[in-house]
Design a protein around this nucleic acid. Structure first.
Lengths: 119, 119
DNA sequence: CGGCATCCTTATAGATACTG
DNA sequence: CAGTATCTATAAGGATGCCG
């Protein structure tokens, strides 16, 4: 086996294709990740809280995205060993450093929503 | 045919699910859109130039993403009626207003790359 | 409560070949 | 040069049910 296929994707997965923006997207590139992280900016949240705040994503999707974020060192998963189970998610320091990105996204989205409601 | 399936997605497509971040993502949510837009921050670019700057995406993908961005009023497509054909893309004013988002993405990606190379 | 495993459907992305 | 069309493979995503 050699470089038969998936040349482009592999190069992307490998790391940088030349652009720092792609590095960022490889971490928060999922559709729901920025939304979840944005909600976590305000503090720790339980799984169910995240589900309620992101009703357009299924619990399954939210789980998967959270796992990836955890693997990338963006969030911590805190399990409280009690019954009924309780799990909270919080941003790591690296995750909190995403605040400028997330806040600028929110700001732009707000402007867009204003433009749309005006039209 | 009625509201059988895709309930969640439909609600998302419909507009806002409650969060401005989602509004932003509905416009630049694609994996390649932020990269393309970031490159266009520096000025007009031809199709081939965008392909060269984004080697991990296929020309087909780039075409599709550019079309969506055009439909959302983020970029202009300028066709020069000459042979050989020449098409340039440039940000609209709305597109340029994304600069803070794109630049914060680049900044964070640069920090990430530094952390990775240090590790 | 907070998941995870499974199954299944749909959407997406890639390769390739062709056109104005 | 700047795409478009088609076809196929893969993966994303949803529904459901079970478990700690």
């Amino acid at each position: 086996m050699d470089d038969t296929v998936t040349t482009r994707r592999d190069r992307r997965k490998a790391g940088r294709t030349g652009c720092a923006v792609e590095a960022t997207l490889s971490v928060i590139g999922g559709v729901w990740k920025p939304v979840l992280l944005f909600h976590l900016l305000e503090g720790k949240l339980r799984f169910n809280a995240l589900c309620r705040l992101t009703p357009s994503a299924t619990p399954r999707m939210i789980t998967l995205q959270l796992r990836e974020l955890e693997a990338d060192g963006i969030i911590n998963r805190i399990v409280y060993p009690e019954v009924p189970p309780k799990v909270e998610y919080e941003l790591t320091e690296l995750g909190r450093s995403l605040a400028p990105v997330l806040l600028s996204m929110r700001d732009w989205g707000q402007r867009l929503q204003m433009l749309e409601s005006a039209a």
